[in-house]
């Protein structure tokens, strides 16, 4: 029983972080039809910025604030300078469909090597803002700490804010219209260009938050978020790539799956099991958990 509770809670924690990264990838995918591998790089920059602020001031919330602002700025910059140039230049040939993905892979490499040149490639530890001691419930320790609780709560808050923006505001409506049918959105008078940039801004914010939340549980290095990117991507694919609730659901499913494998099977099968989870979900729901059109609307 205690084991099961622990597994669920850890799954929820992992799932929260995966959801945030998946959300970032889905936001970019919806706005520009690009799988943004540089998201891991963008988030690593913001996490290093947060790290600098935390080590200097010791104020975690200030660090989060700066990370979020930097994430937004970097997201806008990548869309404006790289993606727009790319779409102006590349419109035909066998690579056209692949070019954006390759460009983001290249950007990931560039960002990572610049981060390495500035901060070095050695591992650093990012101090947790709250205690990482496990909770004790009725005399028994559960593998769940205040930090895990913080991760879950912060993710829930972010998700609520995002869903209000997307479902309740004109801006959100513009974002959704431009994502699904850019041409009709333009004919309706929506300025799709800035709206796209905004999609990247929101993605940058989600990625930045994922980075600062997950790093206190592990270590910080120029590639330390690569795995989060892979998990986030798989979660997004499980959720159907188009759907924001799908991304969240995909993240939770993956998080629980990983947690179950960790607790009951063994550490070395975690990565292979991701592949299995992905294959199964693609066979059962080829367009993702929420991939059918009816539910895709949100």
């Amino acid at each position: 029983m205690r084991n099961l509770l622990g597994t669920l809670l850890i799954g929820l924690t992992l799932g929260s972080v995966y959801s945030l990264m998946a959300l970032a990838l889905v936001l970019v995918w919806r706005s520009t039809r690009v799988v943004n591998f540089a998201q891991a790089g963008q988030a690593i920059v913001t996490t290093y910025i947060a790290y600098e602020i935390v080590t200097r001031t010791g104020v975690f919330w200030l660090a989060v604030l700066f990370a979020v602002a930097a994430g937004a700025l970097i997201g806008a910059g990548v869309e404006y300078f790289l993606m727009r140039t790319l779409f102006r230049h590349v419109d035909e040939g066998p690579v056209a469909a692949l070019a954006p993905v390759i460009a983001t892979l290249g950007l990931l490499g560039v960002i990572r090597s610049i981060v390495g040149m500035i901060w070095g490639n050695d591992f650093r530890s990012f101090y947790s803002p709250v205690s990482t001691d496990n909770f004790v419930l009725a005399g028994e320790t559960i593998p769940f700490s205040r930090l895990n609780l913080l991760i879950i709560l912060a993710t829930v808050v972010v998700m609520i804010i995002f869903s209000i923006i997307f479902q309740r505001t004109d801006l959100g409506l513009s974002l959704r219209a431009a994502a699904f049918q850019p041409e009709i959105a333009r004919l309706a008078g929506i300025r799709v260009g800035p709206i796209r940039t905004l999609g990247w801004v929101f993605a940058g914010v989600a990625g930045a938050i994922a980075g600062v939340l997950v790093t206190p549980t592990t270590i910080l290095s120029p590639n330390s978020l690569d795995l989060l990117l892979v998990f986030g991507f798989v979660a997004a694919v499980i959720g159907g790539l188009e759907s924001l609730p799908g991304a969240v659901l995909g993240g939770l499913v993956l998080g629980l799956g990983v947690s179950i494998v960790l607790n009951y099977v063994g550490t070395s099968l975690v990565f292979p099991s991701i592949f299995v989870v992905l294959i199964i979900s693609l066979i059962v729901r080829p367009n993702g958990l929420l991939g059918n059109k009816k539910v895709r609307s949100a």
Partner: peptide
């Protein structure tokens, strides 16, 4: 535009609203 230019992922109301957002 040609072929029933609506956005199927949005509600009817939202499809109307987007025409006036600007």
């Amino acid at each position: 535009s040609e072929g029933k230019s609506v956005i199927p992922e949005l509600t009817v109301r939202e499809n109307l609203v987007i025409g006036g957002l600007w």
